[in-house]
Simulated assay, not measured.
Amino acid sequence: MQNTGKITRDSLMTLEAYSKYRKDNKPAIMAHRKLRSVRLGEFINLQFESETTIRYQIQEMLRIEKVFEEDGILQEIEAYAPLMPDGSNWKGTLMLEYPDVNERKRELARLIGVEDHMFVEVEGHARVYAIADEDMDRENDEKTSAVHFVRFELDPAMCAAVKAGAGVKLGCDHTNYPAHTTIAAETLASLASDLR
């Protein structure tokens, strides 16, 4: 799977080519996904997306659904390509992971708006709060969703600081889930590669 900076129909593999590629390369892709996954407290996991993770997601959906016609391929690209960072931001899939169904139901009711309380803080700069769920609203008056899509928009000074080695915290200041963590150096190195 070759990264090109833009996912197009022509830059994706055929189902047959992907099937062969997948056998040899799935462990490396899973390691990349794990590297870009940051746990915040016990129940929040933020998967920072990249061209590699989004290409993999599209190829997997095409494989699982056996899609080979152009319209179907373009629909998958349209659904997932907006989640790819584009040089001045980090984009991610925010997952609230409560294994127990009763606890999940209770906590999703307590965590309405949590996606708007997620932030990154580049050392020496102000917090940047997530812009969440730009494609559709994922909560109602009774509960939030267990999955949200978030974008952290960084200014040029923040991008330069990250590329120069500044530390970055990921946090949440929701009343019912206050937490923060320093993003590990190896994860931050991968995230820095997303920035221009």
Rank of each mutant, 00 (worst) to 15 (best):
residue 186 E to I: 08
residue 40 L to R: 11
residue 33 R to W: 02
residue 138 R to L: 06
residue 186 E to F: 02
residue 68 F to M: 00
residue 182 T to H: 04
residue 183 I to L: 05
residue 2 Q to H: 12
residue 190 S to W: 11
residue 156 P to T: 08
residue 84 M to S: 07
residue 38 V to K: 05
residue 89 N to Q: 11
residue 2 Q to I: 09
residue 7 I to M: 14
residue 157 A to M: 03
residue 181 T to S: 00
residue 59 Q to P: 03
residue 36 R to C: 12
residue 53 T to A: 12
residue 66 K to M: 10
residue 61 M to L: 04
residue 90 W to G: 01
residue 45 N to A: 12
residue 63 R to S: 15
residue 54 I to L: 10
residue 17 A to T: 15
residue 141 D to T: 00
residue 143 K to E: 09
residue 28 A to P: 14
residue 120 V to C: 13
residue 33 R to S: 06
residue 86 D to G: 11
residue 80 Y to G: 03
residue 159 C to R: 13
residue 84 M to N: 08
residue 187 T to H: 09
residue 163 K to R: 06
residue 156 P to I: 14
residue 172 C to S: 11
residue 185 A to T: 03
residue 118 M to E: 00
residue 86 D to V: 07
residue 195 L to Q: 09
residue 84 M to L: 07
residue 79 A to M: 12
residue 51 E to Q: 14
residue 29 I to M: 14
residue 127 R to N: 02
residue 81 A to Y: 08
residue 70 E to I: 00
residue 79 A to W: 10
residue 31 A to R: 05
residue 135 D to I: 01
residue 2 Q to K: 12
residue 43 F to E: 14
residue 144 T to C: 13
residue 117 H to M: 01
residue 104 R to G: 14
residue 79 A to S: 10
residue 126 A to F: 06
residue 135 D to C: 05
residue 182 T to I: 05
residue 49 E to N: 11
residue 115 E to Q: 15
residue 133 D to N: 05
residue 66 K to V: 09
residue 172 C to I: 04
residue 96 L to M: 15
residue 156 P to K: 13
residue 35 L to G: 01
residue 46 L to E: 10
residue 168 V to C: 03
residue 118 M to F: 02
residue 35 L to Y: 07
residue 2 Q to L: 05
residue 178 P to Y: 04
residue 12 L to K: 11
